[in-house]
């Protein structure tokens, strides 16, 4: 009647049910958090040049360079259902060709247990800041914002924008040579 297999099966099924219920509870308790934290972004030394983009279509596109500072403390975002934060700095701007452009300049992975304080000063972009065309020259409304993707232990994967942004004005002359 109650063989070892029926017992093992019952224990296994019950374990699975409990794990599923706990996972769902973890999701429910954290799904409605706003996950926001304030950030301070600064920048300097904005420059543009017009060079062929060999990683894409080889046409002459605007390539920008700038130095930026980021100060943010993401400890309020971490709760019991956060495995990792993926922080990324986005340059958002519009050009006559594309009303919306988003280019990720920098990113950082913060795992649970890592220091939640990010203090980056006068850093260079981690990825090339190429425009799709020639829309960066003289563009005086390039907004830098910091966003993060919250990776839970299990549950919803929200994208959040930190409160605080910074506007970069690019000069109206191309530079030649190196940045």
């Amino acid at each position: 009647m109650h063989s070892i297999w029926t017992r093992a099966n019952a224990v296994f099924a019950f374990t699975l049910s409990v794990l599923a219920a706990m996972t769902f509870a973890a999701f429910l308790t954290t799904a409605f958090n706003d996950n926001i934290a304030p950030v301070v972004i600064k920048s300097s030394n904005a420059q543009v040049k017009n060079v062929p983009n060999y990683s894409a279509n080889r046409a002459k596109n605007d390539l920008a360079s700038l130095n930026f500072d980021i100060q943010v403390d993401v400890s309020p975002v971490f709760n019991w259902n956060v495995k990792q934060l993926f922080l990324y700095l986005v340059a958002e701007y519009s050009t006559p060709l594309n009303p919306l452009n988003q280019v990720v300049l920098w990113d950082k992975i913060i795992l649970r247990g890592d220091s939640p304080v990010v203090d980056v000063s006068s850093a260079n972009p981690k990825y090339y800041f190429w425009d799709d065309g020639n829309g960066l020259l003289g563009n005086d409304n390039v907004t830098l914002v910091l966003r993060w993707n919250v990776i839970p232990n299990a549950g919803y994967l929200p994208l959040v924008q930190a409160s605080g942004s910074h506007t970069v004005r690019f000069p109206s002359n191309y530079i030649t040579g190196k940045f």
């Binding site: 993926f86 990324y88 060709l97 594309n98 009303p99 919306l100 452009n101 988003q102 280019v103 990720v104 990113d107 990825y127 799709d132 993707n149």
Partner: peptide, 15 residues
């Protein structure tokens, strides 16, 4: 994978 660049045209098409 994760999206790192978006360019969106006036008509809403994007790459």
């Amino acid at each position: 994978s994760r999206v790192i660049k978006v360019h969106e045209r006036q008509n809403g098409t994007s790459k």
